[in-house]
Amino acid sequence: MSPMSFPIPDDMAESLSRLARDTGHSESFLVLQAMREYLQRESWQIEEIKDSLRELKAGNVASAEEVSALWKKWGNSAN
């Protein structure tokens, strides 16, 4: 593992300490868990955006008529 050191606001440090105490986990464990979840979520979102841009560049998009037909099928109004 690579060590990191950075300042955090006092209120966050207090919340982290309280959560560590209440859950029986170390502060390091909680920070690593939060970072892991954040990185997974952000990576997923970036990959979805990249996939969408590839589809757009390939011309794989719905026409206005196709979108309107789907709205009508679902009982919504496109206007």
Rank of each mutant, 00 (worst) to 15 (best):
residue 44 W to E: 15
residue 69 A to F: 12
residue 62 A to N: 09
residue 41 R to V: 03
residue 40 Q to S: 11
residue 6 F to C: 06
residue 44 W to C: 04
residue 38 Y to W: 13
residue 3 P to N: 06
residue 22 D to I: 07
residue 62 A to K: 14
residue 25 H to V: 07
residue 31 V to H: 00
residue 23 T to S: 15
residue 8 I to W: 14
residue 69 A to H: 14
residue 64 A to C: 04
residue 63 S to K: 07
residue 77 S to N: 11
residue 22 D to P: 01
residue 71 W to A: 13
residue 55 E to L: 09
residue 2 S to V: 13
residue 65 E to S: 11
residue 27 E to F: 02
residue 51 D to M: 11
residue 72 K to S: 13
residue 33 Q to H: 15
residue 21 R to S: 13
residue 52 S to W: 06
residue 34 A to D: 07
residue 24 G to C: 04
residue 36 R to G: 04
residue 6 F to G: 09
residue 39 L to N: 08
residue 18 R to W: 06
residue 4 M to S: 07
residue 52 S to N: 14
residue 10 D to F: 00
residue 52 S to E: 13
residue 15 S to L: 13
residue 12 M to Q: 02
residue 30 L to Q: 09
residue 3 P to V: 08
residue 12 M to S: 01
residue 36 R to S: 14
residue 66 E to V: 03
residue 10 D to W: 00
residue 12 M to H: 01
residue 25 H to C: 14
residue 25 H to Y: 15
residue 60 N to Q: 15
residue 79 N to R: 02
residue 3 P to S: 07
residue 77 S to L: 05
residue 42 E to K: 12
residue 65 E to D: 12
residue 64 A to T: 08
residue 2 S to C: 07
residue 26 S to C: 02
residue 30 L to G: 01
residue 1 M to K: 08
residue 40 Q to D: 12
residue 55 E to F: 06
residue 33 Q to G: 08
residue 62 A to I: 07
residue 3 P to W: 04
residue 76 N to H: 12
residue 65 E to N: 08
residue 59 G to V: 05
residue 53 L to H: 10
residue 59 G to I: 03
residue 36 R to A: 14
residue 62 A to P: 05
residue 41 R to F: 06
residue 48 E to M: 11
residue 56 L to C: 04
residue 27 E to K: 13
residue 53 L to F: 15
residue 11 D to A: 05
residue 48 E to G: 03
residue 25 H to M: 14
residue 79 N to Y: 00
residue 52 S to K: 13
residue 30 L to M: 06
residue 25 H to S: 15
residue 39 L to S: 08
residue 59 G to P: 01
residue 29 F to L: 07
residue 36 R to E: 15
residue 9 P to F: 03
residue 11 D to I: 04
residue 58 A to L: 10
residue 46 I to T: 05
residue 6 F to P: 08
